[in-house]
Amino acid sequence: MTPTGEPILSVRRLAKRYGAVQALAGVDLDVQAGEVLAICGDNGAGKSTLIKLISGADVPSEGEIHLRGEPVRFVSPQDALTRGVATIYQDLALAPRLAIYQNVFMGAELTRGLGPLRVLDKRTMIDQASGYMVQLGSAVTDATRPVASLSGGQRQSVAIGRALRWNADVVIMDEPTAALGVRETAQVLDLIRALNGTGKTVVLISHNMADVVAVAHRVAILRQGRKVIERPVSGLDADMLSHMVMTGREAA
């Protein structure tokens, strides 16, 4: 999907202190609707903090977050999710022994009336979850399978399926390929393209510069709690990106 140039999610002067540690020191950043924006930086650069703040996992010390032009204050990841910002955690936050559809709908189950009672609408949840798997190009479409039986890449599909269930506009992915092998990494990159292809905006946190070059439209580089670079990815290769992350300066 082509980015529109309109910011869907913006942060202004966003800062976070943990005691004496200034983890994030006044970051301005616009996430454009429909883009894949990569956020890079060395350990301790502030990536995780930035993600915690825009995913609702933590609250900023200073600064503002705007969603679709409106100022927002997320009190929890669930709060952010219901407003269309889904975060896929590095450890995926899945229940391995439960089925795909149970993970996709966890905490937001579909129900139907049965006389005076409301009961789980398993049929519809299974069908919809299978639909998300198909939409994401997953080889596994039987949504009754337990997550424990899936590969790492397929588990990412389940985690992303949760975002689709909420019809989230913005999907934040924290190091989605960190624990994966070569083939699974390729699957996850395809997954990100498929997700972006359905119109979702993706914020990708990654240490892997080859991944960034492969899927991102733009990249923001953080260093010591500040944003030092924000630019399109086109024209960059992985080595140039690595150099920029290490030095905090545009490659010559």
Binding site: Y89, A93, A95, M106, G107, A108
Partner: peptide, 8 residues
């Protein structure tokens, strides 16, 4: 933990 994150 996943259940808590899912709002349960």
């Amino acid at each position: 933990e996943p259940a808590r994150l899912a709002g349960i």
